[in-house]
Computed example of a mutant assay.
Amino acid sequence: MSDLSAFPITQRWPAARPEEIQLYSLPTPNGVKVSIMLEETGLPYEPHLIDIGKNETWGAEYLSLNPNGKIPAIIDPFGPEGRPIALFESGAILVYLAEKTGKFLPTEPTARYETLQWVFFQMAAIGPMFGQLGFFHKFAGREYEDRRPLQRYAAESKRLLGVLEGRLAERPWIMGDDYTIADIATLGWVRNLIGFYEAGDLVDYGDLQNVPRWLAAGLARPAVQRGLQIPARA
């Protein structure tokens, strides 16, 4: 049996199956990237719900795993050279799991780097901009009298959707015929933008053709449907 006692986070969230990957997450757009990837690859894992509403990411146990205090994070008891590895940042975890399994990331160098650039496009642009739009449209930011922040993030989110719309013209997935971690990284954010954030009208989502088709195809995948609900909320 694997020994994870060196990781303080396991004192707060004990591992019932320490031989499996330990997932510390919440089904947010960032969190579901990893649960979807784990479901897609079939790797055995044990999910732990981290309640950000209760500030659980800011406790000492969680910060010992991710000093940035964000979800998701993982511990793989069988990492490189058979030794445990702890990782945070959803993009890094996606790359790690893709390389561990040989799935959803091309091995041919050019295609590999092109895939990674679209993963980083999500990490650097789509995630931050969509998240800010959600804050100023649905949450506390909507009370601000100054509408310029909302307008700025709506315009930039619309532009980014246009980039994605163009990329998906005449191709089913971001990288063409193959579904990759670029799709996995992005699906949850687009779903959240038009669903939970209710911002579809702000970004003229109804005028798009390729992005809605791609999103529907992604959400139809059984592993995506399961991953969107993991870890199960209380």
Rank of each mutant, 00 (worst) to 15 (best):
M1K: 07
S2A: 15
L4Q: 14
S5D: 08
T10G: 04
R12H: 10
A16V: 13
A16P: 05
A16M: 11
A16E: 15
R17F: 02
P18F: 09
E19L: 02
I21D: 10
I21E: 10
Q22K: 08
L23M: 06
L23N: 04
S25F: 05
L26I: 10
N30T: 05
V32S: 14
K33V: 02
M37L: 08
E40Y: 11
G42T: 10
G42I: 11
G42N: 08
E46A: 05
H48M: 03
I50Y: 09
D51Q: 14
D51M: 13
I52W: 07
G53K: 14
N55W: 07
G59W: 01
A60S: 14
A60G: 04
A60F: 01
N66E: 13
P67G: 02
G69Q: 03
G69H: 12
I71K: 01
P72E: 11
P72D: 09
A73E: 00
A73T: 00
A73Q: 02
I75M: 08
P77V: 07
P77W: 10
F78R: 14
G82R: 09
R83W: 06
R83E: 15
P84W: 08
P84R: 09
P84A: 07
P84D: 11
I85Y: 07
A86K: 09
L87H: 04
E89F: 03
E89S: 04
G91V: 05
G91F: 05
A92Q: 08
L94K: 11
V95W: 00
V95P: 03
Y96A: 11
L97C: 12
L97R: 09
A98C: 05
T101W: 06
T101P: 00
K103C: 05
P106N: 13
E108A: 15
E108R: 15
T110R: 15
A111H: 12
R112K: 11
L116K: 08
G127W: 02
M129K: 06
M129N: 08
G131D: 12
G131V: 13
Q132H: 09
L133E: 09
G134M: 11
F136M: 04
F136I: 04
R142I: 00
R142W: 03
E145I: 07
R148F: 05
P149D: 01
S157W: 03
G162R: 12
L164M: 09
L168D: 03
E170Q: 15
R171L: 02
R171Y: 03
R171W: 04
P172T: 09
G176T: 06
D177S: 14
T180P: 06
I181Q: 08
A182H: 03
A182S: 07
I184K: 10
A185V: 01
V190A: 07
N192M: 13
I194D: 04
I194E: 04
A199D: 04
D201I: 07
L202T: 02
V203K: 04
Q209L: 10
P212Y: 10
P212D: 08
R213I: 00
R213E: 11
G218N: 02
L219M: 14
P222M: 13
A223W: 04
V224M: 06
I230M: 05
A232D: 08
R233P: 00
